[in-house]
């Protein structure tokens, strides 16, 4: 009986800097792509801009015409099946499906890119750390550069990090067809037809609505602080001012909460909103759902049949 040992590949240490260049270049390319597409390009402004998730909700495409209930159920299931994949190639195929969906629905690429950019911090942590720290198993390929045997790269770790990233990007891209192809109230109505309690969908709708109101409030307060000479630094005064800022935000939103609720009661609010949406299922809705789920199941079958191995 032969024991399987990790396959060790020795490389010249001159290749070492190349490893750093690649992720840094990819990261800054993404940052740059978003920076140039940002409307005002103001760095301070970036944290405060909240994208409208259903701006393209009233456009027309095969995904816009797809029944909302079918769409939610199918895409959630597709996302779940995607994150169950265990090898890289089927996951990349699922990523292509996500990209195709955005293309078919004629959604703006910028929003999709913004979603991917939001995850770069978390994912680059995986991409940088996993090759260094993955547990060395038999049949792994380990790279050693020159004589520095303290610095080893495990290719299985890299593959795992790539797999995680591919899955995360696939599901992130799915959010665009899921949310941007119908107005938000209609999406939420579809959600409650699928069995989510109406109180919950109402809470999502209200919270989403008031995020923009409180954002305005916070912006006004921030402007007031700036006018009075507030400048962010690493010191206790900044933290104290931030604490007061948050406290004031909570006080104002608490008072607004009371007013909003009184106004809702005055207009006859009885716990849920009246339901105005009409839904009808057609054969094409079922066909599109079957197409999505069929693709996901085929990918899962391929995934389970493929031998697992480095970049396999």
């Amino acid at each position: 009986m032969t024991t399987v040992t990790p396959q060790i590949v020795h490389l010249s240490s001159a290749l070492l800097p190349l490893l750093l260049i690649f992720p840094i270049a990819a990261l800054s390319a993404l940052r740059w792509a978003l920076r140039t597409t940002d409307a005002n390009g103001d760095r301070e402004e970036r944290d405060w801009s909240i994208p409208a998730i259903d701006a393209t909700g009233r456009a027309d495409s095969c995904l816009h015409r797809w029944d909302v209930r079918c769409k939610i159920a199918t895409l959630l299931l597709f996302a779940l099946l995607t994150v169950s994949l265990t090898s890289l190639w089927p996951t990349l195929a699922a990523l292509l499906v996500s990209l195709a969906a955005i293309w078919l629905a004629r959604l703006p690429w910028r929003n999709a890119l913004r979603r991917v950019a939001a995850m770069t911090g978390f994912l680059s942590m995986f991409l940088l750390i996993m090759p260094l720290t993955a547990v060395t198993r038999p049949a792994d390929v380990v790279l050693i550069f020159g004589q520095q045997d303290w610095f080893t790269l495990n290719l299985r770790g890299l593959e795992l990090a790539l797999l995680v990233s591919a899955k995360a990007i696939t599901v992130a891209l799915l959010m665009e067809p899921l949310l941007a192809t119908a107005p938000l109230p209609r999406t939420l109505e579809g959600l409650s037809r699928l069995g989510v309690p109406r109180q919950i969908t109402l809470m999502i709708l209200l919270a989403h609505r008031y995020i923009f109101v409180f954002l305005d409030e916070a912006r006004r307060m921030a402007t007031g602080m700036e006018v009075r000479g507030f400048c962010k630094r690493t010191d206790l005064d900044t933290v104290r001012s931030t604490g007061n800022f948050l406290g004031m935000l909570f006080v104002r939103s608490y008072e607004r909460t009371q007013r909003v609720y009184a106004a809702m009661l005055a207009r006859g609010f009885n716990g849920t909103l009246p339901d105005r949406e009409e839904f009808s299922l057609r054969a094409s809705d079922g066909f599109i759902s079957a197409l999505w789920l069929g693709t996901a199941l085929i990918l899962l079958a391929i995934d389970r049949l493929l031998p697992t191995g480095v970049l396999g």
């Binding site: 919270a207 008031y210 995020i211 009371q258």
Partner: peptide, 25 residues
């Protein structure tokens, strides 16, 4: 049950609070 809408509106303010950045070096 009547208080769920109020929790939702307050959640929006916590959402905004979580966007606040504090400088650190």
């Amino acid at each position: 049950n009547d208080e769920l809408p109020k929790v939702a509106v307050l959640t929006a303010s916590f959402f905004i609070a979580s966007l606040v950045h504090v400088p650190l070096g």
